[in-house]
Amino acid sequence: MKVSILNSLTLLVLVAGCTASAPEATESQASATQDPALLEAILEDVRIGWEQGDGTPFYSHFLDWDGARYFEGGGENLGLEDLVVNHVEPEAELGLTLGFSNIQTHFEGNFAWAVVDTEIQLTTADGRAIHNRGHGTYLFRWMDDAWKVVHTQSASSPVR
């Protein structure tokens, strides 16, 4: 009986250990919902968050993971709080209007990415009117039954 209990415990611990060492395998068991509308809804929340200087959609839809980086035009924010406090909030104070259009989504299992056309207008603190068009790339990972933004990159240039 002792052997049986010990073996059962050993098996249990082994299974637990293997599961703990393979989080991706666990996640892949819950298959992602590959619906472009889900990504488009997240991007719309994020767009509004940018315009209103509201970090809520960012904290809701972005995965705040160690190593997260958000790039714009060669500059970068390190982590979610840096993005919200040092980029989203100050830019909204400049009267930012942001347009997302032509959203193209791509799915690969529990990973997805979206490419969007962007249009940006604001007035800098020294009175310079900015009107740019460009593109953004958003990377998503399916976690806990939702798509989470794990990386962003965007760039734009002045409208001529």
Binding site: G73, G74, E108, W113, H151, A155
Partner: peptide, 21 residues
Amino acid sequence: LMVLTRVDNRWMIRAIHWSSR
């Protein structure tokens, strides 16, 4: 930024985004 996928044990580039200032 590059996104790559592995097909037939070969990594291929699926997306590239370059930005600069």
